[in-house]
Amino acid sequence: MTTKRKHPVFIVAKNLWSGYRISLIAYWSIFTAIFIGIQLGLPIHLSKEMEIGQGIWSGAGISPKLYLLILGILLTPLSLSSFVSSGITRKHFVGGAVLFSMLMSLISALIMTVGFPVERLLTEWFGGQEILVKPLLLQVGVEFFLGFLGYFAIGWMIGSSFYRFNWQTGIAVSILSLIPIILIEMVGGTGPSELFGYTFTMPSMSFIVEMLLILLIAVIVMTINYGMHRTVAIKRKLI
């Protein structure tokens, strides 16, 4: 009498996706609307004087990172109990959540990447001149994807630590999570990256090594997250 059903990992991923896709669509709609607004309002001669080589879009990446960080923080406190009480193991929840985070990061990375040619198109439309550099879209896409994934994983780690342990531990983990954030920014950022006024510079590495390093950070954080979920007790109310 057991009906055929999907693997629990996909059940989790699908349910998370259907729960958060509205939020994702809303976020990106508002985000792009703001940028198009800025584009339209920005006088072209001013941008020429300032010699903006990279456009404003390239500086926009931090916002989706924070958005995904917050989604990550909320993930376990909001959803773990619902799934485990529906007979899903913690392991499968983590699996589904990883899949979900990859999907969210992928979509966000795609939008960010597509944003560059669109921005150039808009600038040319209004200014008629090519003033923006052309980034390598594939590289940009991969870098955004891994960066987003890393931020999501770190947010998830913070949320999980609040769920798993007490609030003191949660705060400690929140502070410690700056370490992987700094690492990701140092490795991924081309040139110096700034944080709290400090400037970090990394010796330049090949792109592939950089990406592998970010991936490694994301994988390590995800592994820690799995560790925190493995034997966690289901709580009644957290928030």
Binding site: P8, L78, I88
Partner: peptide, 27 residues
């Protein structure tokens, strides 16, 4: 195992909760 509303997230609508349960329980 059901305690009150079955540990479903408070932010869910009744429909969401039913949908989640429907996709998780094999029978």
């Amino acid at each position: 195992f059901i305690q009150e509303h079955g540990h479903m997230s408070d932010g869910y609508s009744v429909k969401d909760a039913i949908k989640l349960a429907a996709s998780c329980w094999p029978n």
